[in-house]
Design a protein around this nucleic acid. Structure first.
Length: 804
RNA sequence: GCCGGCGUGGCGGAAUUGGCAGACGCGCAGGACUUAAAAUCCUGUGGUGGUGACAUCGUACCGGUUCGAUCCCGGUCGCCGGCACCA
């Protein structure tokens, strides 16, 4: 008999059944489980098989939870503000909302093909005014709490995107979107004070069930370092001083010069008339350099201001220099330089002939002939006045307090994290709900007037000046001040693409609420997210911003938790056939639509899992999916033919069934989804062989069907029905196993000589050591020719003879 | 440069706590069915030697610990990712 599985008919049939009778209806009597995908940007190119992977993983996990009696919250939405839609508008003159709606339609169709549990009543679109009303509301709360502020400063500017970038978007000195080297532009911008949450963002990581590498990336990005601020009085004006930040205040006696960033506010007043021309030229050149140039050229440059400061400990005169290796926005923008113990300071001192005084010696020797800086700087203090002879590690921890007591500085903490540049000079984003009044300053739009709807414009083109296209909409821009009623102007910048995604996970559980962003009752019942699945590329962008906003919303009482995502899983990418990233320009994009047509949704789901460990990148292989297709056929054939037979269960089948349930469940729990699939294949092969000899009992076929349900839901429903059930397979509880029944009576024991296996013998599982060794010796008697010096017996594992 | 991670057949990848390396799949080879092909099914498939049972080498490379190492330790090389003048 040739049984053939018709994937098209079966999948269509069950899709209809599920539509009429959802398998995961809202049920408040059950405990909730919130399993979230990172929602996609609805791009015009649609989804490729790589995008599918995370959605398949999350759906398997969701269905697995469902079969443990949970009500699963598994929503989907669209992160739809952003540059591609705007660029398309520039090219075609069509409003971005039109192309966005078309893209959403197509991608929604593709997402629905996954056959996932998504509850489309919860759908979100960040560009919907009903949604971004609350994005704007959050901004206003931040403004009211002093967390949103305006600042004019040199900012990362992408000349290609014609927009400012947050530090997180300008990693490595290039634009995160387009790779163009970032330059600086001095602009007024809206900032969010993420730095005031730095400690909580850092410490909150400890309790999260997240991949260690993501936690580490956030930790490094926040970059907390402990040290001291030290004040160096000016030689010519001892009432004034320069404050530096240092992590090594113990080396203060070795500070032989200081360096200010070119942007430091005191550069001008410190520059002497003789040095003025040179210093100004240097600062001008530094301002024009892109981040990439500044970082790539590590050859030290700099100029002397002509002034001196006084080392507050030993009253030595230290010349004040300007150099671009000091960053304006880290610490205080000024450093004390200890060339004997810092590579950069050493390079600078060597180049400009500055003094070098070693202050730490590993063994107490005088170090005066050092050929390179002693950077590890651990040992005894030398050349350090009162501190001489002290242990440097001990001094390092005590120095901040000593300095504080002396009144020349204080203990302090510094961070790499900067405040979040939150405004963009582009059209397709949430308008910032602020009105600028000449009399009242920046005033928030009253909450009852939200949302501030993004108006239609004629030209979407960004400008080189840093003005938003909205600035030309005079009708919209000109308004009245909500405080004093006099003429005022609207803020024309929009929010960055990360705004809508910083809180969307809260909205899903209460999408239709027009009174609050989420009701406290629903938030308490359904939030936070139990499992969050998505790519690792958001490790320091979206995930950091979302944590920040959640903590803020917690602080103002909107929600009662302050970490949004309890558990995080990062899936690896699916690469093109040769291990190259899939991209339209390379022409190596594999479409899920084609795969579903030829092999079916279940086959694609299982192949996406089988391709490799879910957290690792894997290369697509068109022929691999054929193997899955053969396997699904084999399972179907097994169930159809064996269920017709009415086979009694045997001891062997009971054991195999229990082993199978255990194997699949433990692999699934540890997220080893690729080996779950290979496990199904292996057991199916085993059962197919038993079927040929005698047959497979119904209970075993049922267990196999239920275990497969989260992976191949359509096929599992079909098989469940064939087995005689009227209700959905997802009404079944996840099967359990009896450990005793998994054990075999005999164990296969490898017998080794000097660690090399010579034979495998079968022994009763509770065999005694002496009996086992005797049996083993007999089995390999012909090879035991030498002197056996040691006999090793590990029950159930190994027998090894050490022979000389 | 600093900090992570990884390195296993022709390919994707398996291997509880240190205990039979290569599960499962792809590909390939041979066979069955067929007029033939496709599909399907069966058998084989790390290298070398041997007709064979078997021997021997083998988890990037060098060394160590151990009765026994893909797994632990030290070093080297390569690839990938993060940060990158952070004081």
């Amino acid at each position: 008999m040739n049984t053939i599985y018709n994937h098209r008919a079966v999948e269509e049939k069950w899709r209809k059944v599920w539509e009429e009778k959802p398998v995961n209806p809202k049920d408040e009597s059950k405990p909730k489980y919130y399993c979230l995908d990172m929602f996609p940007y609805p791009s015009g190119a649609g989804l490729h098989v790589g995008h599918w992977r995370g959605y398949v993983i999350s759906d398997v996990w969701s269905r697995y939870q469902l079969m443990h009696g949970k009500y699963v919250i598994h929503p989907m939405g669209w992160d739809a503000f952003g540059l591609p839609a705007e660029n398309y508008a520039i090219k075609t003159g069509q409003h971005p909302s039109i192309s966005t709606a078309a893209n959403i339609k197509n991608i929604k169709r593709q997402v629905q093909q996954i056959g996932a549990l998504y509850d489309w009543d919860m759908e979100i679109n960040t560009t919907d005014p009903k949604y971004y009303k609350w994005t704007q509301w959050i901004f206003i709360q931040m403004f009211k709490h002093g967390l949103a502020y305006e600042k004019k400063m040199p900012l990362n500017w992408c000349p290609h995107c014609k927009a400012v970038l947050a530090n997180e978007e300008a990693e490595g000195g290039v634009c995160e979107r387009c790779g163009t080297p970032v330059t600086k532009k001095n602009l007024r911008q809206w900032m969010l004070k993420i730095t005031s949450y730095a400690d909580r963002l850092l410490e909150g990581l400890d309790d999260l069930d997240w991949p260690e590498r993501v936690k580490k990336m956030q930790k490094d990005w926040i970059g907390r370092s402990y040290g001291a601020e030290v004040n160096f009085p000016l030689k010519n004006d001892p009432d004034k001083h320069i404050t530096v930040f240092t992590t090594r205040p113990d080396t203060l006696y070795g500070a032989t010069f200081m360096v200010l960033a070119p942007e430091h506010e005191m550069v001008k007043e410190l520059t002497t008339p003789e040095q003025k021309a040179e210093v100004e030229a240097y600062c001008q050149a530094a301002a024009n350099k892109s981040n990439v140039d500044r970082v790539q050229n590590k050859e030290k440059t700099g100029v002397w201001t002509g002034s001196y400061a006084i080392d507050p400990l030993n009253n030595a005169e230290v010349p004040i220099w300007v150099s671009d290796y000091v960053l304006a926005d880290h610490g205080t923008g000024a450093i004390m330089c200890v060339p004997a113990h810092d590579q950069r300071d050493w390079d600078f001192a060597k180049k400009f002939g500055l003094k070098i005084i070693p202050v730490i010696s590993p063994d107490g020797s005088d170090m005066s002939d050092m050929k390179e800086p002693y950077v590890e700087a651990k040992g005894k203090m030398i050349n350090s006045g009162d501190w001489n002879g002290m242990d440097s590690d001990k001094l390092k921890s005590e120095a901040p307090d000593i300095i504080q007591k002396m009144g020349i500085g204080k203990r302090t903490v510094s961070y790499k994290l900067r405040d979040w540049v939150f405004s963009r000079q582009r059209y397709w984003g949430e308008p910032i709900p602020i009105i600028h009044c000449p009399h009242c300053g920046a005033v928030p739009v009253p909450e009852d007037q939200l949302p501030v709807v993004l108006p239609d414009v004629k030209s979407y083109e960004p400008t080189d000046t840093g003005e938003s296209p909205l600035a030309s909409m005079t009708d919209w821009v000109n308004t009245t001040c909500p405080v004093c009623g006099r003429p005022a102007k609207r803020e024309t910048n929009t929010m960055p693409q990360w705004a809508g995604s910083s809180w969307y996970f809260l909205r899903y559980v209460d999408v239709h609420n027009d009174k609050e962003l989420v009701s406290r009752e629903k938030a308490d019942k359904y939030l936070p997210v139990d499992m969050y699945i998505g790519g690792v590329e958001h490790a320091v962008l979206h995930l950091l911003y979302a944590r920040f906003w959640t903590k803020f919303l917690h602080d103002i009482g909107v929600v009662d938790f302050d970490e949004p995502f309890k558990r995080l899983f990062n899936q690896g990418m699916i690469l093109g056939p040769k291990g190259i990233k899939m991209s339209k320009s390379l022409g190596n994009v594999v479409s899920p639509d084609d795969m579903i047509r030829d092999f079916g949704c279940d086959a694609l789901r299982m192949y996406e899992l089988f391709i490799g460990p879910p957290e690792v990148d894997s290369a697509w292989d068109d022929r691999g999916i054929e193997g899955i297709s053969r396997f699904l056929n084999k399972v179907y054939k097994l169930v159809v033919e064996e269920s017709a037979k009415d086979v009694p269960e045997t001891k062997e089948l009971v054991r195999l069934r229990n082993q199978m349930i255990k194997t699949i469940t433990t692999r699934l729990e540890s997220f080893s989804l690729n080996t779950v699939v290979s496990g199904f294949m292996e057991y199916t092969n085993t059962f197919a062989n038993i079927a040929k000899k005698g047959g497979v009992d119904k209970k075993t076929l049922e267990a196999l069907t239920v275990l497969m349900a989260p992976f191949a839901p359509h096929l599992a429903e079909e098989m469940h029905e064939i087995l005689g059930y009227k209700e959905s397979v997802f009404k079944e509880q996840w099967p359990t196993w009896d450990e005793k029944l998994t054990e075999e009576e005999d164990v296969q024991m490898p017998v080794q000589i000097n660690g090399k296996t010579k034979k495998v013998i079968s022994l009763p599982k509770d065999v005694k050591k002496d009996d086992a060794l005797a049996a083993a010796k007999e089995a390999i008697a012909d090879k035991l020719t030498g002197n056996v010096v040691k006999e090793i017996f590990v029950p159930g594992r190994i027998i090894n003879f050490v022979m000389k």
